[in-house]
């Protein structure tokens, strides 16, 4: 068994998870855990399909974690594009806050001056909002004395450049292939435990994990392990190969 040109499934898998890895990584760092997330779309007058797809992926991810999403500083072109793409079904109109030129809506400045719950946070992009406030209250809440906050603009940056951020955040990406010759395999779960430990400690971030099987006729089957970022996923791996 040799590692030649990566099999197509592997390539697709890596591609699919790259932006998600960045978002998941940000969410994992949020302390306290994020319960709401505000996207600033100020710089966008419209959304292209690529961006819409990324929004869709992010919205699904956030919904799966019960994280409420709101849009701030929104232009009508953005909402139109999202509506056409079916994204508004995941995002109630009450969570959309228009651009500051519409008088009754909060400006980005007001958003940035949201109360203590949105104070400067170690990670850019995810702004935890305490759970007893609605998003609107948080956005419109009284400004406190000039606190720096992790503004929605940073979230916008994460969104509009989500892919770039994910790639930029990567350290050197290495791969290795370990062969288990016929008859030599002695799986005890030890490898999976070690990977889980390294992953949990933040030493490595597992981007992809495949089990390859070379058949007698020389063809190679690749089995994808779902959602590899995290200990649970490693347990899946352990269960499947052990």
């Amino acid at each position: 068994m040799t590692f030649g040109r990566p099999a197509e499934p592997r390539r697709r898998r890596l591609i699919e998870i790259m932006p998600i890895v960045g978002w998941k990584s940000l969410l994992a760092q949020a302390d306290p855990p994020a319960t709401r997330l505000v996207l600033d779309t100020r710089v966008q007058s419209d959304l292209d399909l690529t961006t819409l797809d990324m929004h869709s992926t992010l919205l699904r991810l956030l919904r799966s974690r019960d994280i409420e999403v709101g849009l701030a500083d929104v232009r009508s072109g953005v909402v139109d594009a999202m509506r056409d793409h079916g994204l508004l079904e995941q995002l109630p109109e009450t969570r959309i806050f228009w651009t500051s030129h519409m008088p009754s809506q909060p400006s980005l400045r007001e958003v940035a001056q949201a109360p203590e719950s949105s104070r400067s946070h170690p990670i850019g992009g995810i702004r935890p909002v305490s759970s007893h406030r609605t998003l609107g209250e948080s956005l419109l809440g009284s400004a406190t004395d000039g606190q720096e906050s992790c503004t929605a603009a940073e979230v916008g940056g994460q969104m509009t450049e989500g892919m770039d951020v994910a790639v930029d955040d990567l350290g050197p990406v290495d791969y290795l292939v370990v062969e288990f010759p016929v008859g030599a395999a002695n799986f005890t779960g030890e490898m999976a435990e070690e990977l889980a430990r390294l992953s949990a400690a933040g030493t490595i971030r597992i981007l992809d994990l495949l089990v390859l099987h070379k058949n007698d006729d020389g063809s190679v089957e690749a089995i994808e392990i779902d959602d590899l970022e995290g200990v649970d996923a490693i347990r899946v791996f352990e269960t499947q190969v052990a």
């Binding site: 040799t2 590692f3 005890t188």
Partner: peptide, 27 residues
């Protein structure tokens, strides 16, 4: 991890670095 792999009967047969540009390009 290498020790664990060896104890599990595994042997390293390939390793390398994936250039970040290649990842960005494939995305």
């Amino acid at each position: 991890f290498a020790s664990a792999a060896r104890r599990s009967g595994g042997q390293l047969i390939a390793t390398g670095r994936i250039p970040i540009q290649a990842i960005a390009a494939s995305i």
